[in-house]
Design a protein around this nucleic acid. Sequence first.
DNA 1: TCGAAGATTCTA
DNA 2: AGAATCTTCGAA
Length: 181
Amino acid sequence: MSLVRVIGRTTLIGRIVEVEAYGGQNDPASHAYRGITPRNRPMFGEPGHAYIYFTYGNHYCLNVTTRRAGVAGAVLIRAIEPVKGLNVMKRFRPGVPEGQLSNGPGKLTKALAIDRSLNEADLTRSGPLYIGRARSRQLPFTIRRSPRIGITLGIERLWRFYVESNQYVSRAASGNRRTYR
DNA sequence: TCGAAGATTCTA
DNA sequence: AGAATCTTCGAA
């Protein structure tokens, strides 16, 4: 799947190569673990919408809500492989080598100029930010899974999924594999 | 109201 | 390995 960012006449596209799943009160690593708060409210909303939060005083992270309204669930987009608009992404990430443009959740939001203004945006339809099927046919690839990164609880769950050997995955790890086409 | 922790990134 | 940086939320 592709993440598409439209800014005026400019369209930026990235192939999603790494994600993590987050649940609700059954998932101690989730923002929604202790119930609804002002920040995590989008996680309890309609599926297919953006949940964007600000963290560590510097970075925005983008999630897609996944469960029906009233049930918390989201997928964190952790990395994308730039497909279109590379030059613009570089402008948003001055001085950064190409391979590190979008290989992390905070990096990709900066490369695509994503911030709180897009919180709760509908990602299922054309707009400033949405997710679509890849335009061109993909070669077969292998998805691996591993524990989620940067959390202290819930590490026993293999809820991180990433494209094997892709340069833009934030970091490698071992896990089971399954091939998709 | 206060303070500790945080789904990170960058530098040394 | 440690700093930067500031919002968020639970506890008091």
